[in-house]
Nucleic acid binder design. Structure first.
Length: 583
RNA sequence: CGGAGCGUAGCGCAGCCUGGUAGCGCACUUGCAUGGGGUGCAAGGGGUCGUGGGUUCAAAUCCCCCCGUUCCGACCA
């Protein structure tokens, strides 16, 4: 491709609404343009990168035995009514009506449609397992689209759905997909981690997310520095400390702490480490619907953590006797039942259940609220001064915690979720009555798995991980073009034109994607260099009259540091590039 | 959904406070020069100042409604 015939839409300045680097660079390099909030045009350059990702995904899915299909973006409401999601889904589901006033939605996902397809086409266990996928546009009417194509409303997703006669078969396909995903992200040249994920409302089933590590990620990922353990911070277990609680050495004392409520305030006021302070959060206990309707109030429960730790709400709400979803107690209920405000609560002499985090349970001589406004206790000790009802894992893991698999310690980094694999079980097949006949001729509900990759998001994530102050640095596998050839002085030197076009043709014949910058003489060398760097092609070759007089051309890899282009005889460049690209 | 900000040329912004119907940089067009890091000079094209209403002799500017959009948070996954 020649730049004289290719839509180059580079920008010097980035639009003010772009806050993350990938969004800025995609706009500046001329990959995308916004049409409306969360809706984007993909320009030729961007689309080339997108197609690269699709190709890798397609190849690996095919290699893993999945078959490609294509389902419609617009879906009838009837199917969603059958699974109940027409009513459960909130505003994210874009509902529309056709000219006959029938209800439809624009698909945010395709479980309903694929399961409908499966129940119509599959009738025997002999046809199982089967794994069907598509690469297709989805629409989710996000409350807050942001970060360009990282969280847009319309986006392209690869979604696969597998159908099985039993759990073992599902497990097998699940593992194959796990491996296929690892292949995909490795081939794309991304630093990623598969992480154990929350299974959410479906419960019980297994789920993994694939995260690309990048500071701008929206999720916290905890992973071991010595093994391949990785989990969403929400889910990672904070293992029980191995050390025993030190013996009590101080006497219990009540001190005045006027207007000191938060851990930070108390720690500054008393000049002690917040690890020596214990914080007590009051939440509502579990209450049955009947009791609620009868107007009863839930019991209160105290959750106790070390001052420097954070409550993990997911862990807390899963505990027996605690409301799910978790509800913090109202201030007036606390005042009424415990006799003080939330800032002064402690675990001593409470007449409610006291659930203590594993780490908080081994602190001795600690500071805590006195259950009297404006007062704290020092030298407090478990058993002697305060009773523990139960010890549980209540907190978020922090950097340096022991890894739950016993190997190494945890690091925490931000991740961008680019893939998610899930064992669905029979949630959809049951609702839609998707059955096959088993060996005994009896109808059996199929077991399902689903596997998604945010294709458009992968493009953005790749940039988040690969850029410098001049622009994008594409991984080889995603680059819109592999090689850029820059002509300098082409209008003055026949030689420049001849030699650069010869290389361009030779590489193109080998199937290499080349962008030849043959823009006219008004385009200065600086502009060509700056555009090539912004657009991020991995390999750059410069032909100039000055160089060719000496018989040399210049080569520079985009990922190498700034000004270390290497010179070589013009006759060698073709072989040099062929070697670089393994052609 | 709660809070805040912004809407003036394709992009980035000034003008608004203190009303007198638009300006800068980039980009674009033309010419001349230049030719290894966003080149110079000159001449141009492009805006019903988000929409509607109000105040006023006069509104980009002051007031009100609406719409769009962004950020923070909540929600969702």
């Amino acid at each position: 491709m020649r730049t004289s015939q290719f839509l180059i839409s580079t920008l010097k300045e980035s639009p003010s609404d772009a806050v993350v680097i990938s969004h800025q660079l995609m706009l500046r390099a001329g990959m995308i343009r916004k049409v409306a909030s969360g809706l984007y045009n993909w320009l030729p350059l961007g689309l080339r990168a997108l197609r690269k990702v699709e190709r890798v995904v397609r190849e690996e899915m095919d290699a893993a035995g999945a078959q490609e299909v294509l389902m419609p973006t617009v879906q009838p409401a009837e199917l969603w009514e059958e699974t109940g999601r027409w009513y459960q889904y909130g505003g994210e589901l874009m509902r529309i009506k056709d000219r006959h006033n029938r209800d439809f939605c624009i698909g945010p996902t395709h479980e309903e449609v694929i399961t409908d397809l499966a129940r119509n086409e599959l009738s025997s266990y002999k046809q199982l397992p089967i794994n069907l996928y598509q690469i297709q546009t989805k629409f989710r009417d996000e409350t807050r689209p942001r970060f360009g194509v990282m969280r847009s409303r319309e986006f392209i997703m690869k979604d696969a759905y597998s159908f099985h006669a039993n759990q073992e078969s599902l497990q097998e396909t699940y593992e194959r997909m796990h491996a296929a995903y690892s292949n995909i992200f490795s081939r794309l040249g991304l630093d990623f981690r598969p992480v154990a994920a929350d299974t959410g409302s479906i419960g019980g089933a297994m789920s993994h997310e694939f995260h690309v590590l990048a500071d701008s990620g929206e999720d916290d990922i905890a992973f071991s520095n010595q093994s391949d353990f990785a989990a969403n911070v929400e889910l990672a277990e904070a293992v029980a400390p191995t050390e025993a609680r030190p013996a009590a050495s101080s006497a219990l004392e009540t001190i005045d702490t006027p207007e000191q409520h938060s851990i930070e305030e108390v720690s500054d006021f008393l000049k002690i480490d917040n690890k020596q302070i214990i914080k007590t959060l009051i939440v509502e206990g579990f209450i049955s619907d009947d009791d609620k309707e009868a107007g009863k109030k839930p019991n209160l429960v105290a959750l106790v953590l070390r001052g420097d730790h954070e409550l993990n709400e997911l862990k807390a709400e899963k505990l027996e006797g605690i409301s799910n979803p978790l509800v913090f107690a109202k201030e007036e209920d606390i005042q009424q039942q415990l006799g003080c405000k939330p800032g002064s609560i402690g675990p001593c002499n409470l007449n409610i259940d006291v659930i203590v985090d594993r780490s908080a349970a081994i602190v001795a001589d600690f500071v805590c609220g006195a259950n009297v406004d404006g007062k704290h206790l020092t030298g407090t000790n478990w058993e002697r001064d305060a009773q523990i009802t139960r010890i549980e894992d209540l907190r978020n893991v922090v950097e340096g915690d022991a890894s739950p698999d016993g190997k190494g310690t945890l690091e925490i980094k931000r991740g961008i979720e680019v893939g998610h694999i899930f064992q669905l079980g029979t949630k959809y097949s049951e609702a839609l009555k998707a059955t096959v006949l088993d060996e005994n001729g009896k109808a059996k509900t199929m077991t399902m798995g689903c596997y998604g990759i945010g294709v458009t998001r992968v493009v953005a994530a790749a940039i988040e991980q690969n850029f410098d102050d001049r622009g994008i640095i594409w991984p080889e596998a995603i680059a819109p073009f592999q090689v850029s050839i820059v002509q300098i002085d082409a209008n003055k030197s026949e030689e420049v034109v001849k030699r650069s076009e010869a290389l361009y043709n030779a590489l193109t014949d080998l199937g290499v994607e080349v962008l030849l910058d043959d823009r006219d003489k008004k385009t200065s060398p600086g502009v060509k260099f700056a555009d090539a760097e912004l657009m991020g092609m991995p390999h750059r070759i410069v032909f100039s009259s000055r160089g060719l007089k000496k018989g040399i051309v210049e080569y520079k890899a985009r990922k190498d540091s700034k000004d270390d282009a290497i010179e070589m005889p013009a006759d060698d460049i073709l072989n040099f590039i062929k070697e670089k690209l393994n052609k």
